[in-house]
Simulated scan of single mutants.
Amino acid sequence: MSTASRSRPWDVHRLPSAEDSTFLVTGGNAGIGYFVAEQLAATGAVVVLGSRDRAKADAATASIRSRVPGARLRHLPLDLADPQSLETAADRLELDRLDAVVHNAGIALDDPPRRETADGRELMFATNHLGHFALTRWLAPLLSAAPAARVVTVGSFAARSERLDLDDLQSDRDYRPKRTYGRSKLAQMCFGFALDRRLRAVGSTVISVVAHPGGALDGLTPSRPAVRVTTPGERLRALPAGLLVQGKEAGAWSVVRAVLDPEVAGGDLWGPKVFGLRGAPRREPVPAHMTDPATADRLWTLSSELVGTDPGLGFR
């Protein structure tokens, strides 16, 4: 980053150059992840779209290139619901280093019944948390090879009101979709903060940062025809909510800042400045329930057991 980019106020519409960097965005083909990828592509970086659906990744690639001429994009097939399949992710990237990974991909189910992955894990917890937990371990060598890499975990405002039940992480006993989703995002955020503490303990140059998009509605999101079209009716119905929340393009701003801004520090939480729901990104106080050491350590151990990886970091 240039001296000028460090000295001027952060402007979401004037991002610093990152042309020597490579970023991986999980779920970069849709939603918040798409707009994170689009905005990062405009910096000149190589952006890798992590997605299990090749057709959707191709559509996202075409959309980004139509708005960012010369965008440098790649696709990495990823199925976060199958942590075992993630072991080869680093090799398939065919890179010497990775400057940041954005843990964005996720699934939110609105109604019962409880759904499981092929290996019997609750689907939202497995995709949103366990998959990213495992992926971080396998990407550790590539991240360590970069001079100052970042792991950026995309959390959710919904996690603020939830608490983890470490004896029922996968909602076997009491499944309520919205609560299970909120807890899966809370697990992600707890992991992001715990990861940074562990990185500092081993003297790593990699940092871990958590960001969230606030309230991000499809109806307030600009259309990207190859990816998703927001209809006039949707826009009209969403207008009153625009006083409190925003679209997904703006929701990506806090995540992009967490990737790019040299003033971002490990262990930070970034989100929209207006009640944490809308507006330009800012650093936020971290809620205490997201950084409780005992909870974080047990979550880490249980996650390692569930995905079958060594609890060690693999970072240097």
Results as ranks from 00 to 15, higher is better:
7 S>H: 08
8 R>C: 06
10 W>T: 02
14 R>F: 01
16 P>N: 02
17 S>A: 12
17 S>M: 07
18 A>N: 03
27 G>C: 02
27 G>R: 01
31 G>K: 01
36 V>I: 03
37 A>H: 01
40 L>H: 14
42 A>M: 04
42 A>E: 05
42 A>S: 15
45 A>P: 03
46 V>K: 14
48 V>E: 13
61 T>H: 00
75 H>N: 03
76 L>K: 08
81 A>D: 11
84 Q>S: 12
92 R>F: 11
93 L>I: 09
93 L>S: 14
101 V>D: 11
102 V>S: 12
103 H>Q: 15
103 H>F: 14
106 G>E: 05
109 L>M: 09
110 D>W: 10
110 D>Y: 09
110 D>R: 11
114 R>N: 04
115 R>H: 14
118 A>H: 07
119 D>R: 13
120 G>C: 05
120 G>T: 10
123 L>T: 12
129 H>N: 01
133 F>L: 13
133 F>N: 09
135 L>M: 08
136 T>V: 12
138 W>C: 08
140 A>C: 11
140 A>P: 04
146 A>G: 08
147 P>Y: 07
147 P>T: 09
147 P>H: 04
150 R>Q: 06
150 R>I: 08
153 T>E: 10
158 A>F: 11
160 R>G: 15
163 R>C: 09
164 L>A: 12
169 L>R: 10
176 R>I: 11
179 R>Y: 13
179 R>M: 10
180 T>H: 10
183 R>P: 02
188 Q>T: 00
189 M>G: 13
197 R>D: 13
199 L>W: 02
201 A>R: 05
210 V>N: 05
211 A>F: 04
213 P>D: 00
214 G>S: 00
222 P>G: 11
226 A>Y: 10
227 V>C: 01
227 V>F: 07
230 T>M: 07
230 T>K: 06
231 T>F: 09
234 E>V: 06
235 R>V: 01
236 L>C: 08
241 A>W: 12
242 G>M: 05
244 L>Q: 00
246 Q>R: 03
250 A>C: 01
253 W>A: 14
263 E>R: 15
263 E>K: 15
268 D>G: 10
270 W>F: 15
271 G>D: 00
272 P>N: 10
274 V>A: 15
277 L>Y: 10
278 R>V: 00
278 R>E: 06
279 G>N: 07
280 A>R: 14
284 E>Y: 14
289 H>F: 13
300 W>Q: 06
301 T>Y: 02
302 L>H: 09
303 S>F: 04
304 S>E: 09
307 V>R: 13
310 D>E: 08
314 G>V: 00
315 F>H: 00
